[in-house]
């Protein structure tokens, strides 16, 4: 699957409850995303007594890196537990590589790095990873070789003989990552994998996750550190109050938030003349100068503003040296989506 084909069935909140695809693709003769999906959730809801933890979620995950973000209580953990077969949906269907995620056979395709900091504390990291390899059916030498390979990969080989109880949080996260990869899964689900990891360790783990995604694995990462998502994920799932309120690449989601003003930094050799033209245009809500050559514009809707700016550059000869969107980070998009979700209620 190429990068451009979309890792997630892109979706945004519509007036109703069902997300729609951002790329607007319809069925036709082409195979649907379900055909190539590693994960397929169809109208999945999960109730805990009277509480709806997940509400009518439909999505597909394909190879690549996907981020899962949402505030506390959004349903992230429930979604992860459904994907890893720890929970069964109250309604709908959860499939991983075509198998019902609850069934044991699906677990061959799933690697899970849980948020909970639980281990067989008396074991060494090496013994633990080897144990998980054996529980996945690897025997003797293959189990040892695979464990060593993964301990090297997570940079724990030289420290893996100490009891896990003596490990730092970062070392424990690395061991968790190693055990999740031990059976070479198609889907890797990581719940807050960078918690407690030092900055250098974070970079290493992020690099490993990117490599896995590049090798064709579907990697789903849940994190509350939104900055990481900008660097990490090709696609992001936004959850709020049990609903999938948006899904897609950050740019796709941001572009579709047409009614949300966007801040754009423009660098031009003629900032005052350009400002005079921009301020007359209805897409420009506000404008201020930034230094000698800079302008910061608040625009809505963004796509019309960019079209107008392109015309100014090509037809009126305005020199645009640099164009930068200031609030298209995951955090900014997330804040806006959460605000939108609140208003939908």
């Amino acid at each position: 699957m190429s990068q451009g084909s979309g890792h997630v069935s892109d979706a945004l909140p519509s007036a109703g409850t069902r997300p729609r695809r951002a790329d607007g693709a319809s069925g036709g003769a082409r195979p649907g995303p379900e055909a190539t999906s590693v994960v397929n959730l169809q109208q999945v809801s999960k109730f805990f007594g009277p509480v709806i933890a997940l509400n009518d979620v439909t999505l597909q995950l394909q190879p690549g890196m996907t981020g899962l973000v949402g505030p506390n209580g959004a349903g992230k953990s429930t979604l992860i537990r459904l994907l890893t077969g720890q929970l069964r949906p109250s309604l709908g269907r959860v499939q991983v590589c075509g198998c019902d995620a609850w069934r044991a056979v699906a677990k061959r395709h799933i690697g899970y790095c849980a948020d909970a900091d639980a281990f067989y504390e008396e074991m060494s990291g090496r013994a633990f990873v080897r144990l998980i390899a054996r529980l996945h059916g690897l025997r003797g030498r293959p189990a040892r070789q695979r464990s060593e390979q993964l301990l090297e990969q997570v940079n724990m080989a030289h420290r893996a003989d100490r009891p896990i109880a003596s490990y730092s949080k970062g070392m424990r996260q690395r061991i968790k990552l190693a055990q999740a990869l031990v059976h070479d899964p198609d889907l890797l689900v990581l719940d807050e994998p960078l918690n407690g990891v030092d900055p250098i360790g974070r970079l290493e783990i992020l690099e490993q996750l990117r490599n896995l995604a590049a090798k064709g694995k579907a990697v789903l990462v849940s994190t509350h550190i939104l900055d990481e998502m900008d660097k990490l994920a090709d696609r992001i799932l936004f959850l709020c109050r049990g609903r999938l309120i948006a899904a897609g690449s950050l740019a796709q989601v941001r572009t579709m938030l047409a009614d949300h003003p966007l801040r754009v930094a423009i660098s031009s050799s003629q900032p005052r003349a350009l400002a005079a033209r921009l301020v007359r245009h209805p897409t420009v809500l506000g404008l201020r100068f930034e230094g000698e050559t800079g302008l910061i514009a608040r625009v809505r809707p963004p796509h019309e503003f960019f079209r107008m700016l392109a015309e100014l550059a090509s037809e009126d000869g305005f020199e645009i040296n640099r164009l930068r969107v200031l609030d298209a980070s995951t955090e900014a998009v997330f804040d806006y989506l959460m605000e939108t979700a609140r208003h939908m209620r």
Binding site: A104, K107, R108, I110, D117, F119, I132, L135, H136, G137
Partner: peptide
């Protein structure tokens, strides 16, 4: 109680 059941349930072993 220790939270380690998740590792067993994440394996392809039937429950």
């Amino acid at each position: 109680e220790e939270g380690t059941l998740v590792y067993l349930l994440a394996t392809p072993l039937p429950r």
